[in-house]
């Protein structure tokens, strides 16, 4: 921890990214690669941090943190509500809707799961026949675990998009003041992931040492390049011998930030729902070193970009 404090002192004078306002996202092309392992332990290795679980379809970071004093808020989206007595069937709303969520056959039909809650139909209706109703899509939670504020997004089963939940989760976390923030992204490289990483300062790509792992790594690699984010890789489940993910990183000039071994002690603690950085001195040191490296990389990138 000493080097961590030292770095804070050193960097504050020189860089534009304030450590207490740094946002780091942890991504991978698929589930089960180690995003939660890395992000939970990075947050735990920092003395004070926020951990934000954006994996809203299956948030599991809090299985490790077991946060206390949980506060909960519902997340709703706006869905058009039609007053059939006012609607004259002009179809301006149907023509306007770019998501094709509306059809008019005898009366206006609303496809709620296709609706993106843009509110356009309400605006274009000359009859004022459309109002909006709240439709619950999930909830967000906040709790405390040691020095870590744990934020969790949870999507209701059957919902099509987690984006509104991730938006509310991240803006709620920001509204509570600046702190070092570790974002546990959803798996893959689609809308939910893009929403999670758009305001971050740095991306950590977690990869498995298999050909399948390389394929998934290449997907998130492409994504972070499109978003123009500085990034580095953490290779998880490393064994002796050939590591296709390492080869991919070397071939593509991706900085390898850490290699986590395929280790029985780690696996056992993790499967028991323990935070390894809080239980094992060896791993506390490893994640502390990784955190320092990430902070340094993010600040270097910010300096280069300004």
């Amino acid at each position: 921890m000493a080097s961590y404090r030292c770095l804070v002192k050193f960097t504050k004078a020189y860089t534009v990214v304030d450590l207490n306002n740094m946002n780091i996202a942890v991504l991978s092309g698929k589930g089960g690669t180690g995003k939660t392992l890395v992000s939970v332990n990075l947050a735990a290795a920092a003395e004070k941090a926020a951990y934000v679980d954006c994996d809203i379809e299956e948030p599991n970071g809090n299985l490790f943190f077991k946060a206390e004093n949980i506060l909960e808020n519902d997340v709703n989206v706006k869905i058009p509500l039609v007053d059939k007595s006012l609607c004259n069937g002009c179809r301006k709303c149907v023509d306007f809707c770019k998501f094709n969520a509306l059809a008019y056959i005898k009366e206006l039909i609303v496809f709620e799961e296709v609706c993106h809650s843009c509110g356009g139909c309400k605006l274009v209706c000359p009859q004022n026949a459309i109002t909006e109703k709240d439709e619950p899509v999930g909830k967000i939670q906040k709790g405390i675990s040691g020095g870590v504020s744990v934020y969790t997004g949870i999507m209701n089963i059957g919902e099509a998009s987690g984006v509104p939940i991730i938006k509310k989760l991240l803006s709620f976390e920001k509204s509570e003041g600046n702190k070092l923030t570790i974002i546990d992204s959803p798996p893959g490289s689609a809308c939910n992931v893009m929403e999670s990483i758009q305001d971050v300062d740095y991306c950590i790509l977690v990869a498995e040492p298999t050909l399948f792992g390389v394929h998934n790594l290449s997907m998130v690699h492409e994504l972070v390049k499109i978003f123009n984010k500085p990034f580095g890789a953490v290779l998880n489940k490393c064994l002796d011998g050939e590591n296709p993910a390492e080869k991919y990183c070397n071939d593509n000039n991706i900085k390898i930030l850490a290699k986590i071994p395929y280790d029985t002690e780690l696996g056992k603690l993790n499967s028991e729902g323990e935070i390894i950085a809080r239980k094992s001195e060896k791993y506390r040191e490893m994640f502390s070193t990784l955190l320092n490296k990430v902070i340094e990389e993010a600040q270097n990138a910010a300096t280069v970009n300004t």
Binding site: F99, N100, A101, L102, A103, I105, F111, V114
Partner: peptide, 30 residues
């Protein structure tokens, strides 16, 4: 070429054409 909801809009087009029967190999739920 819609990104989503193509079936909904296509159904609207077919109904607007005043057709009374549709012959199709398959159909989505929307």
């Amino acid at each position: 070429d819609s990104r989503g909801g193509a079936g909904i809009k296509a159904a609207q087009i077919v109904i607007d054409s005043k057709a009374e029967a549709l012959l199709t190999p398959r159909l989505g739920e929307n």
